[in-house]
Amino acid sequence: MKKLILILLTVLMGVSMAAEKKILVAYYSRVDENYGVGEITKGNTEIVAEMIAKKTGGTLLHVEPAKEYPKKYDDCINVAKKELAQDARPAIKPVNMNPEEFDEIYIGYPVWWGEMPMPMFTFLEKYNLKGKTIHPFVTHEGSGLSGVQRLKKVTGANVTAGLAIYGHVAQNEREKAQKEVDKWVK
C-alpha cells in the first residue's frame, strides 16, 4: 500500500512538473493588405500562433515594431527589402515579459524575402536564448520554411523541425491549418 502511494505521488509530481513547463509563443504578424488574402484584420501568422498557444497552454507574445509597416503590400515589400539589405534592427514596442524565463519557445513569423522580418532580429537579440529549445513556425506564400538558418545563428538555440503553413490557408481554411498545427505540436 505504501509503495502504491509512493508511486502515485511520483507520477503526480511528474505530471504537475510537466504541466509547469513554461511555454512562450512569440510571433510577429502584420494586418492590412497582403499577398493572396487582400485586406485582413488578423494576420496569418497570428492565427497560427493562437492555435499553437491554445494547444500548448502557452503564453502569447505579439512582437510589434514601433513604427508600423505600410498598409499596401507593394509598399511594405519595398520597406522590408530595404531593411533586409541594410540588416536593420527596427525598434520594437516594449515587451512585458522575459523569454529567458520560459522553457520552450515557439517563434513565429511571416516569411519576408526568404527570411525573418527584421523586427524579429531586434526582439531575439535582446535576450540570451542560447541552448533553449525553439520551435519555429512560419506562414508564407510559396517559399516554405525559410529563415531558420539565421534564427539558429542569432539565438544559438536548439531549433527543432519547424512548421510552414500557407498564409492564405491560415486565413481562409482554418480547419486545414488547425490540422497541420495539431500534427506538428506534440
Partner: peptide, 8 residues
C-alpha cells in the same frame, strides 16, 4: 501559380 520561390 507559384509566386514565391521555394528552395527544396
Amino acid at each position: 501559380q507559384q509566386p514565391f520561390f521555394f528552395m527544396d
